[in-house]
C-alpha cells in the first residue's frame, strides 16, 4: 500500500477509527449508531459536556507542552506522572495552609509550590542524566514509582489529614471556575486554568523560537555532539529542558487541585502524565497542534465516561489507542518516510 498523499492517509485513518469503533461497540452489545450519538451528545452536545472536555483538555494541553519541551531537546520525559502527582500534593498542602493570605498572594504561592516541586523532581533525573549519563527514561520511571510510594507516606504522616487526602485549599488560593462566569457551565470542572492551557504552549513556542537557550534546545536534541563541539553548553541545556518539563507538569497539577477539587487526594492525577505524552507526540510541539490534540483526547476521554454504562472502559481505551495511531499515521510528514 503506497499511501503517499496526505489526504488518502487521513481518509484511511478515519476509516480505521470508525471501523474499530463499530466493532468494539457491537461486541459490547450496543448499536454503534446510538453509542456514537450518545458519546457525542455527552461530550460536545451539552454545555456541561463541553465544560468537562475543556477541563480535561486544560490538563492535557499543559502536560503536552511539558512533554514537548523535553522532547525537543531529545529527552523523553516518562516522569510526568510522578512530577504531576508530587506537584499536586504540594499545591494541596501549601494551599491548605494559606487561610491567612489574600488571593493575590495565596494563589501565586500555591502555584509556585506545585511548579517548584514538579521541577525539582524532574531535576533529579536531569542531574543523573547530565552528571552520570543515566538515561532519563529509566530514571523517570523509577522516580514515578518512588513518588507513588512517597505520597501516601507523606499524607499519612503530617502533610495530609491523616487519610488519603490533604485538607481543603484556602478559598483565596483556588482558581475560579468558569461556571462563575456563565451559568451554562454550571457543575462542570472547567476553570480559568483554561487560560494557562492556551498561553503555555504559545509562550513556550515563542521561547523556543526566539531565545538563545530555547533555540539551542532544538539543536541539542538532534545533534548533541555537534553542539558540544561548537561550544554550546549542552549539559546545561539538557538539565534546563528536563527541569522545565517537570515544572510545567507542576503547572498542570494546579488546574486539577486549585481549579477543580480544592484538595489533593491519592491517585487524583493518575494517567494525566501518560495522556500528556500522547498529546505532546500528536501535537508535535506546535501550539495549535497541542491544543487540537488536547481537545481530541479530552473529548475521547469524556465520551468514554459517558458510554461507560454500556460499553466497558477497556473498549474505549482500545479505541483511544487506535485514534492516536490513526492521527499519527495521518499526520506523518513526507520527510519521515
Amino acid at each position: 500500500m503506497t499511501l503517499t498523499r496526505p489526504h488518502a492517509r487521513a481518509i484511511v485513518a478515519a476509516a480505521i477509527v470508525l471501523l474499530t469503533f463499530d466493532l468494539l461497540v457491537f461486541a459490547a452489545g450496543e448499536s454503534p449508531w446510538i453509542a456514537l450519538s450518545r458519546g457525542l451528545a455527552g461530550s460536545l452536545g451539552t454545555a456541561y459536556g463541553v465544560g468537562q472536555v475543556l477541563y480535561k483538555a486544560t490538563s492535557l494541553a499543559i502536560a503536552g507542552a511539558a512533554f514537548s519541551v523535553a522532547y525537543r531537546a531529545g529527552l523523553f520525559n516518562v516522569g510526568l506522572e510522578g512530577q504531576l502527582s508530587l506537584a499536586a500534593l504540594a499545591s494541596g498542602v501549601v494551599g491548605a495552609r494559606l487561610g491567612w493570605a489574600p488571593w493575590w498572594l495565596a494563589l501565586p504561592l500555591a502555584v509556585a509550590a506545585a511548579v517548584a516541586v514538579g521541577g525539582a523532581w524532574a531535576a533529579i533525573a536531569a542531574w543523573l542524566r547530565v552528571a552520570f549519563g543515566a538515561h532519563e527514561v529509566i530514571t523517570t520511571i523509577l522516580l514515578n514509582r518512588l513518588a507513588d510510594a512517597l505520597i501516601p507516606l507523606a499524607l499519612a504522616h503530617g502533610l495530609g489529614d491523616g487519610g488519603v487526602r490533604t485538607g481543603d485549599v484556602a478559598h483565596a488560593a483556588t482558581i475560579p471556575r468558569l461556571s462563575t462566569l456563565t451559568h451554562a457551565l454550571a457543575g462542570s470542572a472547567a476553570s480559568l486554568a483554561v487560560v494557562l492551557a492556551v498561553l503555555t504552549p504559545a509562550l513556550l513556542d515563542r521561547w523556543e523560537r526566539r531565545s538563545i537557550a530555547g533555540r539551542e534546545l532544538g539543536l541539542v536534541g538532534p545533534s548533541p555532539d555537534a553542539c558540544r563541539a561548537a561550544g554550546v553548553p549542552v549539559a546545561r541545556r539538557l538539565f534546563a529542558a528536563l527541569t522545565l518539563s517537570g515544572a510545567l507538569a507542576g503547572l498542570t497539577a494546579c488546574g486539577v487541585v486549585l481549579g477543580y477539587k480544592g484538595h489533593y487526594e491519592l491517585g487524583m492525577t493518575a494517567g494525566t502524565g501518560f495522556a500528556g505524552i500522547a498529546v505532546g507526540l500528536l501535537g508535535r510541539g506546535r501550539p495549535l497542534g497541542l491544543l487540537a490534540a488536547a481537545l481530541l483526547v479530552g473529548a475521547l476521554q469524556q465520551a468514554g465516561l459517558v458510554l461507560n454504562a454500556s460499553v466497558p472502559k477497556e473498549a474505549t481505551d482500545v479505541l483511544f489507542g487506535v485514534v492516536i495511531l490513526a492521527v499519527a499515521i495521518a499526520g506523518r510528514r513526507e520527510e519521515a518516510r
Partner: peptide, 21 residues
C-alpha cells in the same frame, strides 16, 4: 556528520551554532 553539522536544522543555525544572538 558527528561534530560538524546539525541535521534537521537550517543552514543559518548551522552557520551560527554556538554563537546565537
Amino acid at each position: 556528520h558527528r561534530f560538524g553539522v546539525v541535521m534537521g536544522a537550517t543552514v543559518h543555525d548551522n552557520l551560527m551554532l554556538g554563537e546565537l544572538g
